[in-house]
Write a protein that binds this DNA or RNA. Structure first.
Length: 276
DNA sequence: ACGAGCGCCTGTCGGC
DNA sequence: TGCCGACAGGCGCTCG
């Protein structure tokens, strides 16, 4: 589920508190409960337990789709994958079925990693780079200018859809926001990245930033049972709108599969490069 | 260097 | 009603 806007929303909530929950900042970790061992990518459960207890959460951050808790001296990093979520609740609340890891915090609250599908992972590391080093640029990083982005596109020479999903190319996009960005930019998902003009690259970068910004403003998207709060799902232009009219030209939105991922686009507004 | 296929998991939905 | 396959926001691995 969670792409950049959803992770950003969760990070903001943990940092600032809200929805009846306090902030987790400056709270000491007093206890650990692990219910699914594979949730912990590293270190071993025994070492995790020994190292993490007593450390204090000094910052909450995000890099791509990763959520970072800065402790002292370690960093605790989460990837939510398809169904993960981080929830604050009273330390003695009943434990729901899909809770995988609990951190009991100072002040009678606990941070729960809930993950129905068990794909999510947590890392406790001294150097966050150990986990994050392979990531591409942050979409909002000012260093990522249209010229740099265009250069990167030319160097890759792949179809836009799988390229934008590649976290080593750009960190944070998932299936929803990629489809939305390509629609906004009026680019077909199969377009080869090396065919983009400087102007098209600039428009694509602006479109990516726009859909991510909209997602953040709407507190992310809530689909199915997984997400509380966000309502960006009510503002999708193409994602999961198969057969419904394109908001620009009324042509039915089409669904296809690209790189084994469902892909939604307007066959009229987003020209198929293979037909040109 | 790339894409396809698969594994990791659980839950929901539609068709028969 | 019940069973069965397809599908779901992700990503790492192997293989050709």
């Amino acid at each position: 589920m969670p792409e950049l806007p959803e992770v950003e929303t969760i990070a903001n909530g943990l940092r600032q508190g809200g929805f009846g929950c306090p902030s987790i900042l400056n709270r000491r970790i007093e206890g650990v409960r692990l219910f699914w061992e594979r949730t912990l990518a590293t270190p071993s459960p025994e070492e995790f337990h020994r190292r993490v207890i007593g450390q204090t959460i000094t910052a909450v951050g995000r890099r791509g789709k990763y959520l970072l808790l800065t402790l002292m001296p370690d960093s605790l990093i989460f990837h939510l994958r398809m169904s993960g979520d981080l929830i604050l609740e009273p330390v003695d609340a009943p434990i729901p079925l899909h809770h995988r890891l609990l951190l009991d915090l100072q002040g009678g609250i606990r941070l729960a990693f809930n993950d129905t599908r068990k794909f999510g992972r947590a890392w406790l590391v001294l150097d966050p780079g150990q986990v994050l080093n392979g990531l591409g640029p942050e979409p909002f990083d000012p260093v990522l200018t249209p010229v740099v982005f265009h250069d990167n596109l030319l160097r890759s020479h792949r179809q836009l859809k799988p390229l934008l999903l590649n976290q080593a190319f750009l960190a944070g996009l998932g299936n929803i926001y990629t489809d939305e960005a390509l629609f906004l930019a009026r680019l077909h998902p199969l377009t080869s990245s090396r065919d983009l003009s400087p102007l098209q690259a600039e428009v694509l970068l602006a479109s990516i930033r726009q859909v991510l910004q909209e997602g953040i403003q709407h507190h992310g998207a809530s689909i199915d049972w997984v997400y509380r709060g966000g309502d960006f799902q009510n503002h999708f232009r193409v994602y999961q709108r198969t057969g419904q009219p394109c908001q620009i030209c009324s042509t039915p939105v089409q669904r296809t599969v690209v790189g084994q991922r469902a892909t939604h686009y307007c066959p009229n507004c987003q020209n198929n490069p293979q037909k040109v």
